[in-house]
Write a protein that binds this DNA or RNA. Structure first.
Lengths: 331, 331
DNA sequence: CTGAAAGCGCTTACAG
DNA sequence: CTGAAAGCGCTTACAG
């Protein structure tokens, strides 16, 4: 009662294994009669090719891993980034007829397991999402010559093609907007120190303030709504006179606005708020959130194209997508 | 510049392939000297076993697929069920040293691709989550003798071991509670007709009402918050005199409470509300939601154990976990 | 158009 | 304890 093999199908159809292989793989050079006989045998026996055997000889698997370096709680959180990215990447990948394998690598043990899986040749390529600073995955993967790209610029010392949006430029635009509105004490809630995106946005904030002789006022969050709330409270305590805040992502901005409301500050009258991402919820806050739009979908699609291109021997140059200031009512 | 093979490592270490294989797989019957030589060669060459080749001979992959039959938008929605289940199942599976492969099968095309992947022998077993009525996956999988289990009772005609909670009993407890509180016109917002869990809860609701001569008042939702809101409006329009509603999941209950608030009905004074699931948000509604607790984590863990057991030749009897009425203030 | 044969990279009885 | 050899289930030049 084991699953039938090519051999068994060939025997039943009265042909060679090569012929069965040809019709199973859509080969065109088979006479209709043999073709029919094979098809019948395949149906009758319920034959399905063993993919391990096939990939052993073809040296390809037609699968791509989508590795998200976060624990499930964060991936399945209220941050719509993951859903958007995974959906866009999946549909792009499926269009290219590749199976998408989703792997969550949130813990050290999980990380090691994923590394073993990827370097073991189970996939033709890998797309890394949400990498953190000390991530050992890129090095291991590239050492094994598995084509890989990152959505988001990786930490400095790894040599990995990537797609990102212009985090620095976006942050600069946000802070400049605040300055143009006449704000004088502009604070920021930055992202986690081990994520490049967060750091780039902080750098953009600092660059503009330095150029205008303003003092930096910085609190750190971890991109969750709750951390935005906590950070905002911290900021208000440190500097009650602040009149604006640039928050490194919209989700934290939602938390920050809640903290401001609780502290009795009006937005934007007392404190102007600018976020980053332009998630859907940004349109429904009270008041609607001014933010930097980040093209998640295009980023994901571009990352997939970059990966597919590299697997095809193509260009490895990074791609950086522009961001856009979306002015609503919070600043 | 290709990746090194066992053969190459053997040549370098001056031993046979068999010996390399033994040390790589932790075989104990190798003299320390050879062992060291092999280890050194492995390190120097950066050898990593080709898993396709290994699984071809061992007939196992040590991977388990977690197939969620939903589109990304729903999996990554505000419904914490998916995160909870995926996390619990993953950690249980990793404890058993299995690689977890997450696959989203939300579209027909995706479904076909996943089926090909699973029947192609890429995994040792599969755990199905959130199956819908007409799902062809179970049949295809079992035909190929791939061990599989479902989290949630599958639609009637497939023969698939499963773990579920007592949906009927839970719904009955909810409605009985409403009756005991003296409610007379008890409506329900049911889940989608193609999902067994939703139907079982509806059956429980109907069973209790029939036993007490009450009329059923039914609206249908799809387990999302928004659908709960819409369904509640519908219900109020159909029967303005209703004084209680049993909602088939908490997320829809949140939507329903919003609709009630908008319609000027007080909870529980005018309309009592009971949900199902006991998600975290249920504790923070205004008023806190009375609901049926469903042990997501234990369910996921039990499903994994059932699968692992079956793969080990063990029992295939379904497991049904009890639910519990959690009385808060909404009813 | 079709088949015999080699080979993908491993593991595992079987001798020794 | 170690190695030669068979074999896992496929694909693909190569002849014919």
């Amino acid at each position: 009662m084991k699953r039938p093999t090519l051999e068994a199908v060939a025997a039943r159809a009265g042909v060679s294994r090569a012929t069965v292989s040809r019709v199973v793989n859509g080969g065109t050079t088979v006479t209709p009669e043999l073709r029919d006989a094979v098809m019948r045998a395949v149906d009758e026996m319920g034959y399905v090719p063993n993919l391990a055997a096939r990939s052993l000889v073809t040296q390809r698997t037609d699968s791509i891993a989508l590795v998200v370096s976060e624990p499930p709680t964060r991936v399945f959180s209220d941050d719509p980034m993951f859903a958007t990215v995974i959906r866009a990447a999946s549909s792009e990948l499926e269009e290219a007829d590749r199976q998408v394998i989703l792997m969550l690598a949130g813990t050290p043990a999980g990380h090691a397991r994923v590394e073993r899986y990827l370097t073991g040749g189970h996939v033709d390529g890998v797309m890394l999402v949400s990498m953190h600073g000390a991530d050992p995955l890129p090095a291991a993967i590239t050492r094994m010559r598995v084509p890989a790209v990152s959505l988001g610029r990786p930490a400095v010392n790894v040599n990995l093609p990537y797609v990102d949006n212009d985090n620095v430029g976006g942050a600069e635009a946000a802070v400049r907007h605040l300055l143009e509105r006449g704000r004088r004490r502009i604070a920021t809630i930055a992202g986690p120190p081990d994520m490049v995106g967060g750091q780039d946005r902080l750098a953009g904030y600092r660059a503009v303030l330095q150029g205008s002789d303003r003092r930096s006022i910085v609190a750190i969050g971890d991109f969750t709504r709750e951390s935005g709330l906590v950070a905002m409270r911290q900021l208000l305590e440190d500097d009650p006179g602040l009149d604006a805040v640039f928050v490194a992502n919209d989700l934290m901005a939602l938390g920050a606005m809640k903290a401001l409301r609780q502290a009795g500050r009006r937005v934007p009258d007392d404190v102007a708020v600018v976020g980053f991402d332009d998630i859907e919820a940004a349109r429904y806050t009270e008041p609607p959130l001014t933010t930097i739009r980040q093209p998640f979908r295009e980023q994901a699609a571009a990352t997939v194209r970059l990966l597919l291109g590299i697997m095809d021997g193509g260009d490895v140059a990074p791609v950086v997508l522009p961001t856009e200031l979306i002015v609503r009512e919070s600043a």
